[in-house]
């Protein structure tokens, strides 16, 4: 809360970079506001439904039960291992892709807030992220059940999954800042991102495995979203992620944040005029 009120009192003498950083800091630690707004979004979406957000868990489970056996045969994979693979893949992809597409509208749909009260802008982005994390957590139940039936090969790598998740979150955050800011001005971006994400669903090894693409693994390796999924998926399945994945996310995070700060510094103050 301290951070939030710090960002609330505005002083024009500060440099634009400082203001951008203050906003990100205040937004991130304004947990009180964004967490409850996100929680409220979920509650509202499932208002008056008896099992509420567990509908997500159920529909994810149903989807996997239908797709798992079918695609295992299509790709001539061993059913158990494939089921394990596709369960983890789908849940992770669902989280990453919806976070990327929804962050476009983070500022646009919060226009009522942005135009009426001074809150750090990133609060609205964190609201979207928190909402998707809550949904992710519900879907994770499916993963837990599947992994208890088909346990990962080794246990030790599983401990790396949270580290991978943290790296993914850091990357999702800068992507969110860039997309939400630019989308406020250019309303074509949300549409564009939605269709690009659909394209990536097919291009990324989610339903299929990287190894199945005989000879040309470049399609997977050069795809940033593959590494987003893989860095969490590999540990959950009992493998260590490759150095390539670690490097990819690390470098991308670093360059991405520099880029996001540049964008946010330049356009942060304009967002209120654009939404």
């Amino acid at each position: 809360m301290e951070a939030l009120s710090g960002a609330l009192s505005h002083n024009k003498q500060l440099t634009s970079l400082r203001l951008a950083i203050n906003d990100i800091y205040g937004g991130t630690f304004g947990t009180d506001v964004w967490f409850h707004l996100a929680w409220h979004d979920i509650k509202q979406r499932y208002a008056r439904s008896m099992i509420g957000p567990f509908w997500m868990t159920i529909s994810m489970a149903a989807l996997l039960c239908a797709m798992g056996p079918l695609y295992a045969r299509l790709f001539k994979q061993e059913a158990g291992a494939y089921f394990q693979y596709i369960s983890v893949s789908f849940v992770l992809w669902g989280f990453i892709s919806s976070q990327i597409s929804e962050s476009c509208a983070a500022f646009i749909s919060a226009d009522g807030f942005i135009k009426q009260v001074k809150l750090p802008l990133t609060v609205h982005l964190h609201r979207v992220l928190a909402r998707n994390i809550i949904i992710f957590a519900h879907n994770l139940l499916v993963v837990v059940v599947v992994l208890s039936f088909y346990p990962p090969e080794r246990f030790l790598p599983v401990l790396l999954a949270p580290v991978g998740l943290a790296l993914v979150l850091i990357n999702l955050m800068w992507i969110g800042i860039v997309l939400s800011t630019l989308s406020a001005r250019f309303r074509d971006i949300p549409q564009m991102v939605t269709s690009v994400m659909l394209l990536f669903f097919f291009l990324t090894p989610i339903v299929w495995k990287r190894g199945l693409l005989a000879g040309s693994t470049l399609v997977a390796d050069a795809n940033p979203l593959y590494h987003f999924v893989e860095i969490i998926r590999a540990p959950l399945l009992g493998h260590y992620p490759t150095y390539l994945s670690w490097t990819f996310l690390g470098v991308m995070g670093l360059l991405g944040w520099v880029f996001a700060l540049a964008i946010f510094r330049r356009y942060r103050s304009r967002v209120a005029y654009w939404v």
């Binding site: 609330l8 009192s9 024009k12």
Partner: peptide, 16 residues
């Protein structure tokens, strides 16, 4: 503090 001016400056000391 919702709109930041395109020119000039605003200084506010206090909680709005």
């Amino acid at each position: 503090g919702i709109y930041e001016p395109s020119a000039g400056s605003v200084e506010v000391n206090g909680r709005v």
